[in-house]
């Protein structure tokens, strides 16, 4: 992962109920400090001079209690503990919630040591949960895959395969059929909340372009409209395209659930052989709908086989009944 600095935290573009509402009050030279752990600390005890087990590498949150205590310290003219806290270079930044402001001597010390002071309008508890959410996304395990991510009937489908097998062409036709493109070529996948894989384009400002052989680079947003794109989508199905190999046997029934491991999460997986005359977009569309059915608890292949088994059972019972002489002797009665 790249260095994640305090400036990056300020620049996180989060919307509505995720917004952190951050601004920088001072200590700007320290904005390049790196945030190393996705965690925060309430430095109340440190302010009283108790630094054992103090977590300096965490973001230090000053809420109402800590700020009130800072004012008490200012009245008494004590700055030692504040200085001890702010002089540490492993502290990434200090942060005031409730639009609170630091005392004058705190501000001056932070400026002197170059420790950034951030402020938010949010209440401490709400801010802490938003910050943890944002940081856990930033620090989530991630992997970049060569493929295309499209949303098909609400299912996030990651199309993989070797170069030139027709991933982009398949995605282009899916977009043309009214589905949405998330990312082409390089898909960044992040594991959030333990088991959700979110796929993004690797570069937000260059996103939603596709390279189609013979056409060059095309802009999907301009050609198909904003309805044809999405910024991120959960990866729920992986379709791997490969050139048809007549020696290889492909899944003919689909009763067994195949999965593939991505960042430790199991994702439904299909291998689809490609050859001229096979309409791959239609197959992907159908796979996505089948995936939706499975999520609703309806497994086409399994239930089909159950019906077959039931039918075979009744057929064989019938034939036994008609071919063996039955013990009650109906045959004798009918023939007289």
């Amino acid at each position: 992962m790249q260095r994640f600095t305090v400036l990056d935290l300020l620049n996180l573009d989060l919307k509505e109920h995720n917004a952190l509402d951050l601004r920088c009050l001072g200590g700007r030279p320290g904005l390049s400090r790196e945030i190393r752990v996705p965690d925060l600390n309430r430095p109340g005890l440190a302010l009283t001079g108790f630094f054992e087990n103090f977590g300096p590498e965490r973001i230090q949150i000053f809420g109402r209690g800590e700020t009130a205590y800072l004012e008490k310290l200012a009245e008494a003219g004590e700055v030692d503990n504040i200085q001890r806290l702010l002089s540490r270079e492993d502290v990434p930044c200090v942060l005031f919630t409730h639009t609170l402001e630091p005392t004058k001597d705190f501000f001056e010390l932070a400026e002197r040591y170059g420790c950034p002071i951030l402020q938010t309008d949010l209440a401490s508890s709400e801010f802490q949960s938003r910050l943890m959410r944002a940081l856990s996304n930033v620090f989530a395990a991630q992997e970049t895959k060569h493929g295309v991510l499209v949303e098909v009937f609400g299912i996030g489908v990651l199309i993989l395969g070797d170069s030139g097998v027709g991933k982009s062409e398949a995605a282009l036709e899916l977009v043309e059929r009214g589905h949405r493109l998330v990312a082409d070529d390089a898909v960044e996948i992040r594991c959030v909340a333990g088991n959700i894989l979110l796929g993004y384009g690797t570069n937000a400002s260059l996103g939603h372009h596709m390279e189609i052989r013979g056409l060059g680079i095309i802009n999907i947003t301009h050609l198909f409209g904003v309805g044809a794109i999405r910024d991120k989508k959960q990866v729920q199905l992986i379709v791997e395209l490969e050139v048809w190999d007549s020696d290889k046997s492909y899944d003919r029934i689909g009763a067994e659930e195949r999965t593939r491991d991505l960042l430790g999460v199991k994702v439904a997986y299909l291998q689809v052989p490609v050859k001229p005359g096979r309409n791959i977009p239609v197959i992907i569309e159908t796979a996505a709908m089948n995936e939706r059915l499975k999520k609703m608890g309806y497994y086409s292949a399994r239930e089909f086989n159950q019906s077959v088994l039931k039918w075979l059972e009744t057929e064989s019972a019938r034939s036994r009944h008609f071919h063996e002489r039955d013990p009650i002797g109906f045959d004798d009665l009918s023939t007289g």
Binding site: S249, I253, A301, F304, N305, V308, L312, E313
Partner: peptide, 17 residues
């Protein structure tokens, strides 16, 4: 006992092909 259901059918097709 189960007769020719989906799995045996797949085996047959695989072999015949």
């Amino acid at each position: 006992r189960a007769g020719i259901h989906a799995r045996p059918a797949a085996l047959i097709v695989q072999t015949a092909s």
